[in-house]
Write a protein that binds this DNA or RNA. Structure first.
Length: 670
DNA sequence: TGCACAACTTAGAAGCCACTTG
DNA sequence: CAAGTGGCTTCTAAGTTGTGCA
């Protein structure tokens, strides 16, 4: 599990170092008049009750020093080098970067391979990074792919109002089809959805239509809905040739618009298609659900590319809103969306250099946190005793973020989005305190909706001082008041920045997720295990992380059924096994009687059969366990965003490498 | 300090597609 | 060959963080 042992293949570019002083410079709190139900700024002193549980001051010093560790070699990228990157990476043979030996070896072998393959395997991580804040030197692309224009319905497909057929003009008809396509979804039964939809739909109607259509309940979209269902059915029934044709066309579009040139490398674009118009579907109880998401036109689009590139052309007869050349950002295309008024971007694929570097950096920051997390924990424990309310609140919030992997929790504009919270925005109504619960003391019960309106429910025992502080924070407050009324994410992050360079609230999530994976792998793995058992161990470690981060999913619609199917298979296998065992017994008896070669062979054959079936049964059982445990848990998000891949690779190398394929998918490894 | 805005990461659902299985 | 399945990719909403300005 020594992830550090992988260092030789990676460049370590610690750009930053810990600020020398963590000394708290007490700042005067500014009071902006009267605020309802805020906590007192200063807290009367309490009797100290140090239980000697926490590490000694010496220990703190050690970890502090560790944290201030300054890498021997902080690379400074000279302008010359930065420019060089644009010009060629093949010619960079003599660059004096640390892992050069390795690189050279590889280059030699790669020389035999085709040019194309080499390009695909560009090792951006072996190159220098930009240090001047610019993201690229050269950027060329073809612009976005727009949603296909609306095709009016054939005349035979009718819309009925109040029982009478009615032909809608195309703009209103288009919006009606959006609704018709969602008829099966429970969204369309929700009041807010219907109200928002109807309001926006009416905006698209002619005055004549507007005066006629006044009640959504009198609208009958069923014929439209049937038509679309038939269409999608027809699409499934298409012949092989037709399907192939569509596939080829998609491939052509991908090749033309799906890539860009950034700094001499062809890179895959993430989302090169503009979002088509439709009805907005927020998550959870979203006040704007059902609103019309407008069609985006070239006139809405801002193009970003380099001056010396071939600029993308807008569709004939149209113009871009703007073309700019900003190399301090990574996006290629942007537009403003009409529901929240926020900006949407077209950016590169995760496989790109620009995303990969950022991702790597994220895990490096998490590793730096590992080095000084003890110090930070001691610090916030100290702060629980602070005289200042804001410091206590900050310290308790940070404890939650660290221990429970809660998100930072920005304030949100009321009425604009679903009512969800994170740590700093927790309200009184979201926690309950139990001085005693069963055999545990000082239990806090959390119950709130977090990101994407996923419920967070957890009961955990906390340290006494935390509990007492929470009681204090709750004093004289209403359920809808903020728990941490003297705290917000920007205050918290400013504090974290002082504790460690680059530290923000979300780094704790990354760190705790990754360290949990590492610990769980160590704990759950046993080198004698069979392959399926090892896979189960890995998935369980992954699952522990997903639980920590509260990554949930709706149980798959077919879950119960597929579970049953699996169980049937297991039962069958068990029957097979007992039959095979019987046969083996019989063969043995036969051999004992005859002692000839033939019967000996039969015994061997039967023995092998039993073994094979046992293995198959075990595999099925493990699969069933894995699936059952994973019913409501989503592993993807943590795999993708929180788990340092080096931990998985290290686990694979030092524990599972004798076994051919734990990770069946090569892509996963790369 | 508070706010708006911009840029970027993280998130679950839906869609798609290749494969298996009966 | 159809139906089921599972493992992706795609889609786009919903977060976090940083910045600049009053």
């Amino acid at each position: 599990f020594k992830v550090g042992s992988l260092r030789h293949v990676l460049i370590y570019n610690f750009v930053s170092q810990i600020k020398s002083s963590h000394a708290d410079k007490p700042k005067k709190e500014k009071e902006n008049g009267y605020v309802r139900n805020t906590s007192p700024a200063v807290i009367k002193s309490e009797p100290e009750e140090d239980n000697g549980f926490y590490p000694s001051p010496q220990h703190i010093k050690t970890s502090k020093r560790e944290c201030e560790y300054k890498p021997k070699k902080v690379k400074t990228e000279h302008d010359k080098k930065a420019k060089k990157r644009k010009h060629e990476y093949e010619e960079d043979e003599d660059e004096d970067i640390k892992p050069k030996k390795k690189t050279k070896d590889k280059k030699v072998t790669e020389g035999k391979k085709s040019k194309k393959e080499e390009e695909e395997k560009w090792k951006w991580w072996e190159e220098e990074r930009y240090t001047d804040g610019s993201k690229w030197r050269f950027l060329e692309h073809k612009g976005p792919v727009f949603a296909p224009p609306y095709e009016p319905l054939p005349d035979k497909v009718k819309f009925y109002y109040d029982g009478k057929p009615m032909k809608l003009n195309p703009p209103a008809e288009e919006v009606a089809t959006f609704f018709a396509k969602m008829l099966d979804h429970e969204y369309t039964t929700k009041d807010i959805f219907r109200k928002n939809f109807f309001k926006d739909w009416r905006k698209e109607m002619t005055s004549e239509e507007k005066s006629k259509i006044t009640d959504l309940n009198k609208c009958n979209f069923s014929e439209m809905s049937e038509y679309f269902k038939a269409q999608s059915e027809a699409r499934k029934q298409m012949s092989k040739e037709e399907k192939l044709k569509i596939k080829e066309e998609n491939e052509r579009i991908l090749q033309e618009y799906g890539f860009c040139i950034m700094d001499n490398h062809k890179e895959r674009i993430g989302n090169f298609r503009i979002e088509p118009p439709g009805l907005f579907r927020g998550r959870g109880d979203h006040p704007k659900m059902g609103m019309l998401k407008r069609r985006i036109r070239p006139e809405d689009i801002i193009i970003n590319c380099s001056k010396d590139s071939k600029q993308p052309k807008p569709p004939p007869g149209t113009k871009w809103k703007e073309v700019r050349h900003d190399n301090k950002v990574t996006w290629l295309v942007s537009w403003t969306e009409n529901i929240q008024g926020s900006i949407k971007y077209i950016m590169l694929n995760p496989s790109s250099r620009i995303k990969g570097e950022k991702d790597w950096q994220k895990y490096e920051t998490a590793r730096r946190l590992k080095k000084c997390v003890d110090r930070i924990r001691n610090q916030y424990r100290e702060d629980w005793k602070s005289k200042e309310m804001r410091i206590r609140q900050r310290a308790v919030a940070l404890y939650f973020i660290d221990k429970l992997a809660l998100r930072a929790g920005n304030e949100k504009e009321e009425g604009e989005t679903a009512d969800t919270v994170g740590c700093c925005s927790l309200r009184v109504e979201h926690i309950k305190l139990y001085p005693k619960m069963d055999d545990q003391e000082y239990v806090v019960e959390f119950d709130f909706l977090g990101k994407d309106s996923i419920r967070y429910y957890n009961k955990i025992p906390v340290e006494k001082r935390v509990f007492k502080n929470l009681q204090l924070f709750l004093e004289n407050k209403q359920p809808e008041d903020d728990l941490f009324d003297r705290l917000n994410t920007s205050i918290l992050n400013k504090h974290l920045q002082e504790l460690m360079d680059g530290l923000t609230a979300k780094v704790f999530r990354t760190y705790n997720a990754s360290i949990t994976l590492q610990q769980q792998l160590k704990e759950l793995s046993c080198s004698d295990d069979s392959i399926p058992a090892k896979v189960l161990s890995y998935n369980r470690a992954n699952r522990a992380v997903a639980i920590l981060c509260n990554h949930q999913r709706a149980p798959p619609k077919t879950f119960e059924k597929s579970m049953q199917n699996l169980q049937t298979k297991i039962d069958e296998k068990q029957n097979q096994l007992s039959a095979a065992r019987k046969q083996l017994k019989a063969a043995k008896a036969d051999h004992k009687a005859s002692h000839d070669d033939k019967s000996k062979k039969t015994v061997e054959v039967k023995r092998k059969a039993v073994q094979r079936i046992e293995e198959q049964l075990m595999k099925l059982q493990v699969q069933a366990t894995d699936r059952e445990e994973n019913k409501q848990i989503a592993l993807g998000t943590s795999k993708l965003n929180y788990l340092d891949p080096r931990i998985s690779v290290a686990w694979y190398l030092c524990y599972a490498f004798t076994v051919t394929m734990i990770v069946q998918n090569e892509q996963e490894v790369s």
